[in-house]
């Protein structure tokens, strides 16, 4: 499988990465090089094989349903590039 330039633009938008028009062709070449490298996986017979979900057999642990952390809003916003009081500031999203 290989991607065309429209697909490169679509992937970039899905990934929320701005790509300049002049970069599209180069990116297409790189992505297709990687896709052709992984192409040989299609030759493997995977009928009846279960997809791996965890390398080590483990059951997800449950923890007690109690509040054991929190009340640190100031810490959480401390690294925000723009904040007001204990809020993150973003461009207006709702008209």
């Amino acid at each position: 499988m290989s991607v065309d330039q429209a697909t490169v633009r679509r992937i970039a938008h899905l990934a929320r990465i701005a790509v300049e028009e002049k970069e599209v062709e180069h990116l297409q070449g790189e992505i297709n090089a990687i896709l052709s490298f992984v192409e040989e996986l299609s030759s493997v017979d995977v009928a009846g094989v279960e997809a791996m979900t965890s390398t080590m057999p483990m059951k997800l642990r449950m923890r007690a349903d109690v509040v054991n952390d929190g009340h640190k809003a100031a810490d959480i916003v401390a690294n925000a590039p723009e904040r007001e009081d204990n809020f993150f500031v973003v461009p207006k999203v709702v008209e």
């Binding site: 938008h13 929320r16 690294n79 590039p81 993150f88 461009p91 999203v93």
Partner: peptide, 19 residues
């Protein structure tokens, strides 16, 4: 995402800010 930590490049709207 330019909102919670690290670098931020502003945009006209939130999607442009992310991108």
């Amino acid at each position: 995402d330019g909102v919670r930590y690290g670098l931020r490049e502003n945009g006209r709207d939130i999607v442009e800010l992310y991108e």
